[in-house]
Nucleic acid binder design. Structure first.
Lengths: 248, 248
DNA sequence: CCGCTGCGCCAAGATCCCGTAAAGATCGGC
DNA sequence: GCCGATCTTTACGGGATCTTGGCGCAGCGG
């Protein structure tokens, strides 16, 4: 490609900035050095000193990546790795003093995503951290791709940004689409005026209820005569989307 | 998630068995040793000796993972890495003799997923290979990682960096190519302004929507009068590429 | 019975967004 | 250092969309 101005040679400015990192190590010096280096790159850093603390924090703060020293006072580092892997796929970068192949291989097979031996080069660790975040970001966005809501014969397809009724494409303006998409997220449930306005128009528009009347009307017009759900008014409260066939 | 029955301690029997590996190195001894080690684990191995050969094979055989030596006779290894990343997210494990930090960091930021210095420990390399395969397995469901994408009569060939319509080469500028290539990766799907801008121009350009209008216009002009797909505008949202023949 | 309130609906501006052309600015090759 | 290709920026017309005000209606309480 062309030389992008945003790709710094050291990768310090990239989309991984601002991610939260859990650093697990009992050596104070290491924690301090790592924290400093990471915060300088605008990561949010949390430190844990023991295995149990690490497990606790991994669960409560849901970090974007974990840097894990294997030599912990209470639990075996490998055990920590294994336990996190039981419920989370957060990237784990293992850090260790000894360079034994056996441990290295075991850690990687146990669910670690990378392995760096001490003494480590900080730039290298940071680069590997960016790799881990890159991966995680990718698989996370894959999950979000599956967004599609169905209400009776009506399908709101966020991926293609279109609405289909009985398979036929329905042509909506951006605001109309937004309105309908909000309601379709929870069929039958009431959304207040405020909720819809703030979601579609923005935070500041919480009271412009006349917009809703206009757009509700237009949406109903476009849905009329089709085997589609009905846009129901909840007087004084808001709107909801109800499948014509059932009375939920 | 749950403790997998396929996770043996030495990793010899796991779900990654049978995967295809592309080994890129000009040293015969390394290739021989690696091939032997990999085939013993029932991987399918293909070897490339030069950068160009590597790119060609990466495109035609779509390996599950690439092991890439940076010291190649024709192309810089980093360049190979970059070119593969233009169209594929196949895991790349970089292999190199020199241990310079700068190169290491650069390779990782350039798209490499891991980095091993020679002389390397075979068990470790194999373990890292398993990690790479584990990662990619997650998002291997889509067909975005192909060197060629076809939409109707239009073919985007990432390897040769060219576009053909009905077999005839279409002359595009780099930005035009990038724009079209993004859309062709998922025909019919909407790409938001932000997505396209960040992919083609860079992270920092997420709001420069006037570029898109200019280039959309130019691309349409070049596609006009040919049996090509149509570049459709989704007002307020983005663009998508639709085969003229069908309505997807 | 009457006024008030909230809603549906309409239609006229106002505004935003898009497409297009064309003029600088920039870059790379010769 | 010039020249051509490409990228960036500006400007403008047209059209779709959004916003706004108004009107009629129904329900409700005074």
């Amino acid at each position: 490609m062309s030389p992008s101005p945003d790709r710094a040679a050291d990768g310090s400015t990239d989309r991984t900035a601002g991610a939260s990192v859990l650093v697990v190590d009992d050596e104070h010096a290491i924690v301090r050095a790592l924290t400093a280096a990471l915060e300088a790159r605008h990561y949010r850093v949390t430190a844990a000193r023991t295995g149990h603390e690490a497990l606790e924090l991994a669960a409560t703060m849901t970090p974007d990546v974990v840097v894990l020293d294997l030599g912990l006072p209470d639990l075996d580092g490998l055990e920590v790795c294994r336990r996190i892997r039981r419920w989370s796929e957060v990237p784990i970068i293992v850090l260790t003093a000894e360079g034994s192949d056996r441990v290295k291989v075991q850690a990687l097979d146990e669910g670690a995503d990378d392995y760096v031996t001490k003494p480590f080069s900080t730039p290298e660790l940071l680069a590997r951290l960016r790799v881990a975040l890159r991966h995680h970001r990718r698989s996370a966005s894959d999950d979000a791709d599956l967004a599609e809501h169905q209400v009776g014969e009506l399908v709101v397809d966020h991926l293609h940004h279109e609405v289909r009724v009985a398979g036929e494409r329905l042509d909506l303006t951006p605001k109309e689409f937004g309105f309908l998409a909000v309601l379709a997220r929870h069929p039958g449930r009431v959304f207040t005026h405020r909720m819809i306005l703030q979601e579609v128009w923005g935070e500041a528009y919480g009271t412009e209820t006349q917009y809703l009347r206009v757009y509700a009307s237009q949406i109903r017009k476009k849905l009329a005569g089709r085997p589609a759900p009905v846009l129901v008014t909840e007087p004084g409260v808001g709107y909801r989307l109800v499948d014509a066939a059932d009375g939920s």
